[in-house]
Structure formats: C-alpha cells, structure tokens
Amino acid sequence: MTTAAPADVEALRERLSRLDTAALSDAMDSLRTPPCVLPGIAARTPGTVACGPAFTVRYRAVVDDSTFHNAANYIDDVPVGSVVVVDNGGSRTCTNWGSLLSSVALHRGISGTVVHGSVRDVKESRTAGYPLFSTDVTMVSGKNRVMLDRTGVEVDIAGTSVAPGDWIVADDNGALRIPANLVEEVVRRAEAVERTESRIREAALSDGRLDEARARFGYARPWEDGGEDGNC
C-alpha cells in the first residue's frame, strides 16, 4: 500500500467524509495498527467534520517575556483542504486558536482544526460552522505565554504521533489519525464495516433477533463485508 497520489486526494476526502470515526476506528483495529485516537479531543462545533491531511503546528512556552510575543503566523501557509493539528501539550492555561483564525481558515478552504490544548471564541466558530476540536476551552490569550516552535514536524498528541500528511478525521465522537500509507485500505475496510452494520440493523429492526443478525452478517469481522451468509 502506498500514499495516495495528489489526484486521489479529493476522491479520498469524499469517501472519508461519508464515514464516521467509529467505523474508521474499527477498520484501524482490524489492521492492528498503532494507536489512532487523539486522546481527549472533543468537538467544539458539534455536528461538523474535519477531514484532510495534517498540517502540524507545535508550540513552546515563552521563556523570555521582556519582549512582546504575538500570535503565531502560519495560517497563510496551510494548504487548502488540510486539517490544522496544533500541539501545545494539552495545556489548559492559554489558548492557541480563536475566532480570527477560524474566519481565515474557513475563507481559505481549510478543512478544520484539532488543538491539543485550548481554544477560545467558541461561539463564533460554532456560528460560522467551522469544524473545531480541542482538549479544552479557555478565554486566556496565548500572547506572551506561548510561541510558535515549528510547523511541518511530527507532533505527539497525548501519546499518539501525528506526522505531516497523515490523514485526520474528527467528528462528534472525537478525532483520529490515519497514516498516509494506510488511508486507502482503512477507507475500504471502514466502508465494509458500515455496510455490515447496516445489514445487521435492518435485520434486527425487521422483527429479527439481534444475536442472529450479528452471526448471519459477520459482526465479529465486519470489515470483511460478508454479505448474506457472513462469509467473505
């Protein structure tokens, strides 16, 4: 399996956007990959989905506060369709994202933002419908508290590594990362998981037994998409 070519990115994004993180997590489990969940990340704009290659941003604490440290300037370099992944160590003491960044990101066609740390101006992001996810929320500015360390580097989100170009999907269930070299296979398996669960649900709601429907349609290995008899 290889990284998707640029021409395939939009097709992958369209398929991923129709899947939820639960099905994608099941698909990742079936491949026995390293942890995919970004722990502690919650939706700040419920009902939205962020889906795209990761643009990674790492912050560090300000040590010398004798000069003014403004907000980090990187948003102009984020490619269209990316998900901004910000690592501030899960800090709850100050913010790394606010309404100005949400407005610019939405205008620029950025798919969403995941912050391992805190965000603010949540009401404005929700009103705009910008997909925003974070560890926490605070009103405290990051100015003179944190500064940009680097962009385009591997970051650690509470034990889960995210490399630039890994695919990020975030929804009301939380956020996960899919290694770039596995994304096509993960999508294929997640689509099979959803088909299997749809068959089980339909059978159980048609006055059938749930346990029988699970056995019939291959609930134990839903990514194999066994069809009527549960065999692939």
Rank of each mutant, 00 (worst) to 15 (best):
P79Y: 06
A204W: 12
M1L: 14
L101E: 15
T56S: 03
G109C: 04
P35F: 02
R195H: 07
A190T: 08
D211A: 12
R221S: 11
T135S: 10
G152L: 06
G142A: 02
V140R: 10
A4R: 03
S17V: 07
I200N: 02
I75T: 03
G90C: 07
E154K: 14
S206T: 13
D229V: 04
V146T: 14
R177Y: 06
E14G: 06
P46Q: 12
L210Y: 15
T3M: 04
T56D: 06
D77T: 13
L19C: 10
A204F: 13
S66N: 04
D87H: 03
T95A: 13
R92D: 00
M1Q: 13
R216P: 00
Y219H: 13
Y59W: 08
L210H: 12
K143D: 08
C51V: 15
M147A: 08
N96E: 14
V153S: 08
I157R: 06
T33L: 15
A27V: 14
S25M: 13
R58P: 01
T151Q: 08
S161M: 15
R189A: 11
G52K: 00
L12Y: 03
R209T: 10
G218Q: 10
C232L: 13
P39Y: 02
A128T: 09
L31V: 00
S161C: 09
R216I: 05
S118M: 05
G98P: 09
A43N: 07
E191N: 09
I41D: 02
S206Y: 05
D211N: 15
I178T: 03
D225F: 04
G89I: 03
A71D: 14
A180T: 06
D8H: 11
L106I: 04
I168P: 02
R209I: 04
L38S: 05
G40H: 08
N173F: 11
P53M: 06
S99I: 04
S30T: 06
C36D: 00
A170W: 11
V119S: 15
A50K: 01
N231M: 05
I178K: 08
R18H: 12
S82T: 14
R108Q: 09
A23P: 02
T3P: 02
V9F: 11
L101Q: 15
I75L: 15
A11F: 09
N144L: 01
M28D: 00
Y130N: 10
R201A: 12
S30C: 05
T21L: 06
E194S: 07
V155G: 11
G174Y: 04
V169K: 10
G89C: 01
T21Q: 09
T56C: 05
D225M: 01
G98Y: 14
A72S: 05
A4H: 00
A163H: 15
M1H: 07
N231A: 09
R32H: 07
C36N: 14
N88D: 04
L38K: 08
V49R: 15
S66C: 05
A27P: 01
A27K: 08
S102L: 10
A5C: 03
S141N: 01
G98D: 04
R108K: 06
N181C: 08
S91H: 03
D29E: 13
V187P: 00
V85W: 00
A192F: 04
V114R: 01
N70D: 15
D166I: 06
G230I: 02
I200H: 01
A180H: 01
A11D: 13
V104E: 05
D229P: 01
G208R: 13
S118T: 10
G117V: 06
D64G: 03
G90W: 01
D166G: 02
